[in-house]
Amino acid sequence: MPDAAGCWGPEPGADAVVKAAWGALAGVMDPEIPVLSIVDLGIVRAVSADADGRLSVALTPTYSGCPATNVIVLEAETALARARLDARVSVVIAPPWTTDWISDAGRDKLAEVGIVPPPHSGKRALTAPDEVIACPRCGSEDTRQISRFGSTACKALHACNACLEPFDVFKCH
C-alpha cells in the first residue's frame, strides 16, 4: 500500500542510489495512460541495493496480459541507465497488483484527464455492484456502463445519460 500520505518511494534513510532509482522511475510514464508514472500506478514493488551499490528493481504487471509490460520494463531500464545507475529490472507477479496501490497523486491525475479513478476495494465491497459513478465532465450521477472492457485492460467504458459523453473508468482490481 502507499504510505500515509498516499505516496510511493524510498524508505526514510534509504541509500542514495535507491533514492536516485525511485527518482528515475518516477519519470517513466505508463505507455497507455501517459499521465501516470509507473510509481503512481503502484507497479514498482521494490528497489534495493547490494553492498556494491548494484540495484535490483522489481516491477509487477497490472493485468497478466497487459501488452505494455514489456515496454514498461524496457523504459524503466532505459531511465535507470540514463541516470547512470547499475540496475537489474525483474518482473514479479506475487502478491498480485491491485488498484489500491495507485497513489493518491495518481488518482488525482486520472481524474484531471477525465478518467474516473478506481474505487478503493474496501469501499467497493460495501457498495458494489450498484456503485454510483459520477460523470467526470458534468458531475451527473446518472451514468451507465457501456462495456466492462474499455480501451485498455484496466478500464471500463461508461457514458453519461445527462451530457451524453462517454468516459473511461479505471476498474477496481
Partner: peptide, 20 residues
C-alpha cells in the same frame, strides 16, 4: 465494437496466463 474489444481483452488475459 465493444464486444470486439471485450473478447480480445479476455484473449490477452488468457495468453498472459499461458505465458506464466
Amino acid at each position: 465494437l465493444e464486444e470486439d474489444i471485450a473478447l480480445t481483452n479476455v484473449a490477452l488475459d488468457l495468453v498472459g496466463h499461458a505465458r506464466m
